[in-house]
Computed example of a mutant assay.
Amino acid sequence: MHITSEERDAVYKTIFSRRDVRSEFKPESVPDDVLNRILLAAHHAPSVGFMQPWDFIVVKNSTTKSAIKAGFLQAHAEAAELFEGERKAKYQSLKLEGIEEAPLGICVTCDRTRTGSVVLGRTAKPEMDLFSSVCAVQNLWLAARAENLGMGWVSIVHDNVIRDALRIPEHIDIIAYLCLGYVEKFHHTPDLERAGWLPRKEAKTAIHYEYWSEPD
């Protein structure tokens, strides 16, 4: 299947304009057909041994969101104590989630037992199924951006909070809790870059040829 130059440019535009959205969510609901397209895109991520280890839990209930928000607040307070001085004050000033503001939450999980104990491609690197589920998150994120939906990944929350709130079995790994919805606008630069937390590195500083470093 040939990709036209216009289609190629649309893919790059989507990648470069993707943002981790924490605020400015609008209350309007996400239509079912749009949600289904996004989840279908996530389901078409690459997976080791074609095991497709992911599941997606769609969260709309406000009580469930409140429980997850409470877990975030606890983990956020714990994290703040790990920073000092100006860095701590900066951390505490940042808006780092949109759990209750976003109309949808989506939890992405990984069932590492899905196709048995021996999985093609996972024998030398057993964490490949976890990486596969992260690929599903990225597909979901880019599909959401293509639908002009904002998405944010909430990592500051302990797994047991999400597991209890969403009744996830113990043998299932929790990969991500995502906030999804239409937003007032997409910013040109990431929130943390705009806030002065860290600058974006130039791509060339992360690219190596043949070796990590030149041989002695």
Rank of each mutant, 00 (worst) to 15 (best):
residue 59 V to H: 00
residue 63 T to I: 11
residue 66 S to L: 15
residue 69 K to V: 15
residue 70 A to M: 12
residue 71 G to D: 08
residue 72 F to Q: 12
residue 76 H to T: 14
residue 76 H to Q: 12
residue 78 E to S: 15
residue 79 A to R: 15
residue 82 L to R: 11
residue 83 F to L: 14
residue 83 F to N: 10
residue 85 G to T: 07
residue 88 K to M: 08
residue 89 A to P: 02
residue 90 K to G: 01
residue 90 K to S: 04
residue 90 K to I: 04
residue 90 K to H: 10
residue 90 K to P: 00
residue 91 Y to G: 03
residue 92 Q to A: 05
residue 92 Q to D: 10
residue 94 L to E: 01
residue 95 K to D: 11
residue 95 K to Y: 05
residue 96 L to Q: 12
residue 96 L to I: 07
residue 105 G to W: 02
residue 106 I to S: 03
residue 106 I to M: 00
residue 107 C to E: 02
residue 108 V to Q: 05
residue 109 T to D: 03
residue 110 C to V: 02
residue 114 R to H: 07
residue 115 T to P: 00
residue 117 S to Y: 07
residue 117 S to R: 10
residue 121 G to K: 04
residue 126 P to F: 02
residue 127 E to G: 00
residue 129 D to I: 01
residue 131 F to Q: 06
residue 133 S to N: 00
residue 137 V to M: 03
residue 140 L to A: 01
residue 140 L to G: 01
residue 142 L to N: 04
residue 142 L to K: 03
residue 144 A to Q: 03
residue 144 A to N: 05
residue 145 R to E: 00
residue 145 R to H: 02
residue 146 A to G: 12
residue 146 A to E: 13
residue 147 E to N: 12
residue 149 L to T: 06
residue 150 G to P: 00
residue 151 M to F: 05
residue 152 G to R: 05
residue 153 W to F: 08
residue 155 S to K: 12
residue 155 S to L: 09
residue 155 S to P: 06
residue 156 I to H: 08
residue 157 V to C: 12
residue 158 H to Q: 10
residue 158 H to M: 09
residue 163 R to Y: 11
residue 163 R to S: 13
residue 166 L to R: 08
residue 167 R to W: 08
residue 168 I to T: 07
residue 168 I to W: 04
residue 169 P to I: 09
residue 169 P to W: 14
residue 172 I to V: 11
residue 172 I to E: 03
residue 172 I to C: 04
residue 172 I to R: 06
residue 173 D to Q: 11
residue 173 D to N: 13
residue 175 I to E: 02
residue 178 L to S: 06
residue 179 C to R: 02
residue 179 C to M: 15
